[in-house]
Write a protein that binds this DNA or RNA. Structure first.
Lengths: 253, 253
DNA sequence: AGCAGTAATTGATCCAGATCAATTACTGCT
DNA sequence: AGCAGTAATTGATCTGGATCAATTACTGCT
């Protein structure tokens, strides 16, 4: 039975329908026959070591990637060489789609920890999406979700004080992790304080101080990279506690 | 001949292939037969008065819209009722695509001036995109471009000083307008100072002061809504003059 | 285990840009 | 034309959070 199980496992690993991320990922909602077609174009189980690039800004878009495990940061690079992180990506998420616009990647993706991905050649994905309406829909849906995420971050950056930004970031992470079957209230940050600061448009020192405050207030326990959320409700409150005193709160007439 | 011309004009108006925005808009690259199919699903020439909504956040997504003339602001509303503008849309651009993710609009769109749009029922667009590969591609491309735009704005908000943000905003507007056949160096702002401030995460007063500075430096002429760019190169310089002294300029190793 | 390089924390100071306040355009209405 | 409401400008002040500086963890290497 042990042998049997081993064989089954390796069987399982090579198909979307048996992947634990199925419900979040690209093949969501596809029926068996269509899934097989998709399965055939996916190059599975590429491993990416910590700090290695999955792709770099400017490279021609040849594939998009579904994350199986681990995490990535995606970032732009401005003329100075300064980087601007535009997001962190978790298992079940698709990265590289930003490059469709002009056929080149418009951001770089770098592994925050040793990770594994499924590579999906983009041209074949696009032609498959014509055959499979559900796949086209899922593709559009995932892109639209990315737009939503980006716009929410824009709101944080434009209007919210640093405390709200960090609370919202942590809460978002917690939610995404719990969707993926991990604990909502206890997790490890795979990214550095500097990376979080960069994403949220603040200084590392401010991140550090806020984490200390959150801990002093009994909202979090912070042990280096390990975060325990002690009072989820208070964190939610901080995250939604909008800038009622803030600029431009012109109500919509 | 005058009569003849009138007849021709109204003929022309009702087809994508004769629209001056063809090259920027959804039908870009489609061949004649496919264009006809697209033409058939488009409800043309809806007019939207200043300050009216094209759609509101939360409404079910029934259509997306291609802008024919005029301009819109798209914005999120947070729990307070505070608005966060996420973009301004110009002729040839497609709005409403953000709603695909969950079938409801995730932002509201409001006309900044009297405008006209082509309404495209979303379900029919999606099924047409299955028939017409080029249309699917164009759809994905436009969404990917929106992601890029949003991410660029994120960088501005997170890293750049106010001067750079405004310069970059004006330059972006100038470029988009000139792509659409308008003058690059002379245009009217259809949005208020308050709207610009909101988008760029700054106070109205700062916008006002910076415009005055730009004028004092001979870069712009500002007459209320009317902007004349006198030194495009200097404006470009200000827009790229990145925050070399700014936080988190961790070079990529 | 020990050393070197990097990440994180903590404290002190400073400043870009928000906020407050007052004035001066505009714009739409009747 | 005149009045009311809103948008924009300009100036004075204040502050959240950046910057600077120093110390204290870590982490990876040999």
């Amino acid at each position: 039975m042990t042998d049997n199980q081993v064989i089954n496992l390796s069987e399982l690993k090579s198909h979307c329908q048996n992947c634990s991320l199925y419900a979040l990922c690209l093949p969501m909602g596809l029926e068996s026959g269509d899934l097989d077609k998709l399965d055939q174009v996916i190059k599975r189980r590429q491993s990416v070591n910590k700090n290695n690039y999955l792709f770099r800004i400017g490279e021609p878009l040849k594939s998009v990637y579904a994350i199986r495990s681990g995490s990535f940061k995606t970032f732009l690079t401005n003329p100075d060489g300064t980087e601007q992180i535009v997001g962190f990506s978790l298992p079940g998420e698709l990265i590289g789609m930003d490059g469709i616009g002009d056929g080149r990647h418009n951001c770089s993706a770098r592994a925050l920890e040793t990770s594994s991905v499924c590579e999906i050649p983009y041209e074949r994905l696009e032609s498959l999406a014509i055959e499979i309406p559900g796949l086209q829909h899922q593709l559009l849906k995932l892109m639209s979700q990315e737009i939503q995420q980006d716009q929410n971050l824009m709101m944080l950056l434009a209007q919210m004080p640093t405390e709200t930004r960090l609370a919202s970031f942590l809460l978002g992470l917690s939610r995404r992790l719990s969707q993926r079957g991990y604990a909502a209230t206890e997790f490890n940050l795979s990214m550095s304080r500097g990376d979080i600061a960069n994403l949220l448009g603040m200084a590392v020192e401010t991140i550090s101080r806020l984490l200390t405050h959150f801990q002093d207030d009994g909202i979090l326990r912070v042990e280096r990279k390990h975060i325990t959320v002690l009072q989820l409700d208070k964190l939610e409150e901080l995250a939604t506690h909008c800038a009622s005193h803030h600029p431009n709160n012109s109500n919509i007439g």
